[in-house]
Nucleic acid binder design. Structure first.
Lengths: 190, 190
DNA sequence: TGAAAGCCGAACACTATGTTCAGTATCTTA
DNA sequence: TAAGATACTGAACATAGTGTTCGGCTTTCA
């Protein structure tokens, strides 16, 4: 079974990632220090730096899980490429976000959120590009701008939704997202 | 003429804001320290803190200029509320951005860019809300999400455009922005 | 079971932040 | 134009976080 990682190392990493998420939901990414993390995870300082180069690195690597999820999702639904159901990658992420609701809310929008947001941008950007690039006819709008637009819309809907009370279910998020991304707001202005 | 500010204070602030912009374009917001700023501006450390609470504060206050611009712009064009020309506030900002092109590019997208981006978000959000709120009929999409969507789209177009070579003229930016915001991407997918 | 890999934790050097204060320069206005 | 108010200087200090190093201990793997 492929070179499995040392059990201790795995434990440590899981502890650190868990600690980070816990701390983020508790006080926001910005306010979290490396010291907090290793205290919470009960791990030595030098150990931390043996695994990650810093706070940001830890955060970025904690997104691996999500990326894997997305790749799967996209592979599974690769065959049903109907014209009507574009952008269906979004569902998986919305669900992931609702599961880690508190952490996401603390991340998206806050200052350190940029690191997270950028990571999400990359991950989602890849998904969008893969799905969209073969379907974009010639247009005045450059393709990369289109991709960025879709990603931006996605993140907007995500963070707006997470802020709302009562919580918006993933299905609703997806609907709003697709309406905005596909049709803009022209149709709902009088 | 209203209580004009002390000439020395004005000088100092201008120097600090100028220094910040210069440094941002030179090495990016993140890398700039307070020490850098006061060296560049040739101002005492304590003086800096007498005016601003820190780097972020200085950045935020440096956007005052832009806000004033936008408010003017919007007042001027308040009468021509035709249905066809929505979102025309954008032009002024795109032009401002092209003027401070280098600074904007260093800001939007970089990590510290969040502070700037958030500030831009607030400023533009106000403008959008003012223009849009009376024109939004009942809809499944919550109004504040709509506003955030428009703002997000704006920022996406802005940063994508600034990254492009050769430079995209403000008029072009505006066109792309309005197409995406008003009509989404449904129409350009086959 | 023994070598390899991982972990501990204290100590250290470094960088940046934000405050304080006594002395000096500049402005305002009467 | 002089006096009082206001602003600036610059060095010293306290605080806080970062990232590295290293000798000694523990766990894992084969």
């Amino acid at each position: 079974m492929a070179q499995s990682i040392d059990r201790r190392a795995a434990r440590t990493r899981k502890a650190l990632q868990g600690a980070l998420i816990a701390l983020i939901t508790r006080k926001g990414y910005e306010a979290v220090t490396v010291q907090d993390i290793i205290d919470e995870a009960d791990v030595g300082r030098s150990t931390f730096y043996a695994h990650y180069t810093g706070k940001d690195d830890l955060l970025r690597k904690s997104f691996e899980q999500l990326r894997a999820l997305l790749v799967d999702e996209q592979r599974d639904s690769a065959d049903q490429v109907r014209s009507k159901d574009a952008l269906l990658f979004s569902r998986a992420v919305f669900e992931h976000a609702c599961e880690y609701r508190h952490a996401y809310r603390a991340l998206v929008g806050s200052r350190g959120g940029v690191v997270a947001a950028n990571e999400l941008r990359r991950i989602i950007g890849d998904a969008v590009r893969k799905e969209l690039s073969p379907r974009l006819g010639a247009s005045t709008v450059p393709p990369d701008v289109v991709v960025q637009f879709v990603v931006g819309t996605f993140l907007t809907v995500l963070s707006s939704s997470l802020r709302r009370r009562p919580a918006m279910p993933p299905a609703e998020m997806e609907k709003v997202f697709r309406q905005l991304a596909l049709r803009g707001i022209g149709w709902l202005i009088e």
